[in-house]
Each structure stands twice: as C-alpha cells, then as structure tokens.
C-alpha cells in the first residue's frame, strides 16, 4: 500500500539529488489523477457556465419533438445530441444545467458540514468534559436518526426546495467530521508542540486554530472529497422520493426520477443522468482515495 502513498525516502532524496525535471516531480499516479481532475474541471465549468455552454435552453419545451433518442439512434434529431425528454426538452442541456444544481449543493453542503463538524470536533476533543459528551451523544442521536425520514418530514412541512435539501444534508453530514476531528485532537493534545504552546500561555482559541487545525486539515479534506459522492447520491435520492429540489430546479436525481416510468422504452432518459451521477460520484471517491494516499497514508479507514 505504501507504494501508492508518498514514498518515505522522498524528502531525503530531495535533499541530496539535484533538482529533478518537472515530469519526474509529478505525483505518483498522475495520469489517472489528470483524468480525475479533467472530469472535475468539466463538472465545475459546466456548473458555473451552464447557461452559456448549454446548446438549448434547458426549460425550452417542444411537444412535437418529444422523447427523441440520442444521436446514435434512429429517429433522432441532430440538434439534440442526447435526445429529448417527455416535454421535448433537450437532455444534454438539462444535464449541463443539472450539474449547476449538484455543484451548488456540493459547494454549500460540504463546506457547511465540514466547518460545523470540525468546529464541534475541535472543541469536543480539546475541551473534553461536558461539551464533549454532549457533542458525542448528539453524534449518536444523529446516527440513530433515520435521515431520509427526517428529510421527508421537512419536505412535508416546508415543501420541496433546494435550500431544505442543503440544510438537511448539513445536519446529517457534520457528525462524521466531528468524530474524526475529535479523535485526532485527542491524540494530538498530548503531543509536545501542543503541550508547549499551552505552557507558553497560548489561548484555547489559538491552540485550536494554530496548532490543532493544521494537523487535522488533511484528514478533513480527504473526508470532504469522499463526501462528494455521498452528497450527490443523497440529493438524487431525496429528489427521487419527491423531497428534493423544488419543481423549478433541474437536478440529475430528478431527471432519473422523471424518466423512470419510461425506463423500458426510453432507457437513456434515466441512463444519462444516472451515469452522470455515477461518474461524478466515482471521480469524487477516486480523488478522495488518491488524496488520502498522497496526504496521509495512515488514514485508510476514513469513510
């Protein structure tokens, strides 16, 4: 396994050897990494510039050219590369627009749950005492709580909307960060540099921010990357049950849900968004794995 991680001798080699040419300095596994990053970039670019990239207006209906197959099938039209849905809307454009929704959810849920969870974990691990046990009980409650049911309750209460999805996912995803960070802080707090800082009179806040935080960042970033797939799949699942994004929002999960009745005759209506969800989730996981091996080979069990 260490073969995939940072070779232990590298720093030493770096000191002695002459500066290596750039291609030798690429991280291990870079060809695959390039692919992951390319997919990720594509996803982000599509998300941000959806309105410019999409060849059609994704909400533009055309009832006459509805349910067309993708370009390689007969009875398709060249202007709709991936065909059209039940209202004649362009599937390709909707996929692109859908990436915006996914990106938005990821870009809010992951930082949100990360910040919340890390803060709780830092405090719990550093302060210990009643806050710690309270926080850990909370984590336990959260784990015992059927997240999906809670999401359905919220949707029944407030109506389906993207904002609710984001709030629900943050509420249900902060706990793993808290547990991870707390565990790390517990092992860090007795380390020399922390003890030294403490003796030198650094405030709690300072210790946590300057000494503890930098040491947990790696694992937190790895967990966050691995969470990309969780978030995407969770959003899709909520949409599938009708508790996801609101009716005006185009999302991949909703596209799967909308096309599922016609799976038999129009497989690609669910196929494309399904595969897209899979690819993005897959890349998120692979990137997370790669990061874990690169940053911290010890943390193989983060999940």
């Amino acid at each position: 396994m260490s073969a995939q991680g940072v070779p232990a001798e590298e720093p030493l080699v770096g000191l002695i050897a002459r500066r290596k040419p750039w291609y030798r300095r690429l991280p291990r596994g870079w060809p695959l990494l390039t692919v992951y990053l390319a997919v990720l970039t594509l996803f982000i670019v599509c998300g941000i510039f959806a309105d410019w990239i999409a060849p059609h207006d994704p909400t533009d209906q055309n009832l006459i050219s509805r349910l067309q197959g993708p370009i390689w099938q007969e009875e398709s039209k060249p202007e709709h590369i991936l065909g059209t849905d039940g209202l004649g809307r362009d599937t390709f454009s909707r996929l692109i627009k859908g990436s915006q929704t996914s990106l938005l959810v990821i870009a809010t849920v992951i930082p949100g749950s990360l910040v919340l969870g890390t803060a709780v974990g830092l405090l719990a691990g550093w302060r210990r005492g009643p806050f710690d046990s309270f926080a850990m009980r909370l984590v336990e409650v959260q784990l015992a709580f059927p997240a999906l049911l809670f999401a359905l309750l919220i949707a029944a209460m407030l109506g389906p909307s993207l904002r609710n999805v984001v709030v629900i996912l943050i509420v249900f995803l902060w706990a793993p960060y808290a547990r991870l960070v707390r565990a790390e802080v517990l092992s860090l707090r007795e380390r020399e540099f922390v003890v030294a800082a403490r003796t030198l009179g650094a405030s709690d806040f300072r210790v946590m921010l300057q000494h503890l935080l930098p040491n947990v960042v790696n694992s937190v970033v790895i967990l966050a990357t691995l969470n990309v797939s969780t978030v995407i799949i969770a959003e899709a699942s909520l949409s599938f049950l009708g508790a996801g994004a609101g009716p005006e929002t185009i999302s991949w999960g909703k596209m799967v849900a909308e096309g599922r009745d016609l799976l038999k005759i129009r497989f690609w209506l669910t196929g494309f968004p399904g595969i897209t969800i899979m690819i993005v989730a897959l890349v998120g996981n692979l990137l997370g794995d790669w990061l874990r091996d690169f940053l911290d080979p010890q943390l193989r069990n983060i999940q």
Binding site: L67, G86, D261, L262, K264, I265, R266
Partner: peptide
C-alpha cells in the same frame, strides 16, 4: 399506464 408506455 401512461400512453407513452401503453401504446407500444
């Protein structure tokens, strides 16, 4: 069954 499925 929606017509899209029923007719075929």
């Amino acid at each position: 069954i929606p017509p899209d499925l029923a007719v075929p």
